[in-house]
């Protein structure tokens, strides 16, 4: 494991400046977002507190203004960080946990298993992700775990594909043959000697999926399928806030939008930067 970290640091050093700055900018943006959350958690208003100051425009007291129930928007935005990131993370994690091992098993054993899973996951890809998420969300209802599951389905094939590809390219290598000759069980070969090389690519994919998942959460929230109110969630707030633009209240929809964009950009930068830094070769194996 430490070899892979060392190899990553080596690749980081020799990476293009643009890739490095992409990656670092993304990390900084992410840290900023975290900072916002904790800052607000410690010093901010209660996002659920209903006040009399309805539709108060952004000023020094409420930097992002208040919404239709007089709740401080800035505080709701910062709490939204928790909802969005948590769901996005759980969704990504679920798809990783399901997609990767199946990809490895499918790639390693080939034959019928491989054909069955490949067809299933190829079919899944045919659905536009957000439609899938909407359908499943409608079926299993709103809530933290259920929304995460709904979103995760879209990404499972991506992990399947990436890990299957890596497995196919590694399984004929001499060191794997040697392990077979020594009597190693397939489980050991797959998990300790193949999957471990997938970790860098999986992490990069995870970051990109996080960005996409945040968009999906917001989308579901926007359509009213997300977390039940009054839990602060960007998409939900944006959806409600939309109604008030006609009366000149722009801050109820703009700030949620900004938060969504910022967080997606953060993860996309991290993910793309990582992808470029890692390059195309498998880390830890000389080609």
């Amino acid at each position: 494991m430490s070899e892979i970290i060392k190899e990553f640091l080596k690749r980081f050093k020799i990476a293009k400046k643009s890739s490095k700055s992409m990656f670092i900018t993304g990390i900084l943006l992410f840290l900023f977002i975290l900072f916002l959350y904790f800052f607000n958690y410690l010093y901010g208003y209660d996002p659920l507190e209903i006040t009399n100051e309805l539709f108060s425009p952004p000023d020094l007291i409420h930097i992002m203004g208040t919404d239709q129930l007089g709740r401080d928007i800035f505080s709701r935005m910062c709490y939204g960080i928790r909802s969005s990131l948590t769901i996005a993370f759980i969704a990504t994690f679920i798809s990783l946990i399901i997609g990767s091992p199946i990809g490895a098993i499918s790639g390693y054993f080939s034959g019928k298993i491989d054909r069955v899973f490949s067809i299933i996951f190829d079919a899944l890809c045919a659905f536009p992700g957000i439609i899938l998420a909407i359908l499943i969300s409608v079926m299993i209802g709103p809530g933290l775990i259920t929304t995460s599951i709904a979103i995760s389905v879209e990404y499972i094939p991506q992990y399947f594909r990436i890990v299957r590809g890596l497995t196919l390219s590694l399984k004929e290598r001499p060191f794997i043959e040697a392990l077979k000759a020594l009597g190693s069980r397939p489980k050991n070969i797959i998990f300790n000697h193949i999957l471990i090389y997938a970790i860098p690519s999986i992490i990069a994919l995870m970051m990109l999926n996080m960005g996409s998942a945040i968009l999906a959460v917001s989308g579901l929230g926007f359509l009213g399928l997300g977390l039940p109110p009054p839990i602060p969630e960007w998409g939900t707030d944006l959806g409600r806030g939309r109604d008030f633009i006609t009366i000149g209240v722009w801050w109820t929809s703009t700030f949620p939008g900004l938060m969504i964009v910022m967080s997606i950009v953060a993860f996309t930068l991290i993910g793309e930067g990582l992808k470029e830094i890692l390059g195309n070769k498998i880390i830890g194996i000389k080609d």
């Binding site: 070899e3 892979i4 290598r173 001499p174 060191f175 040697a178 000697h193 830890g284 194996i285 000389k286």
Partner: peptide, 10 residues
Amino acid sequence: QNPYEVLEPR
């Protein structure tokens, strides 16, 4: 045959 590839470098 290939001593360079039969042992995992990591």
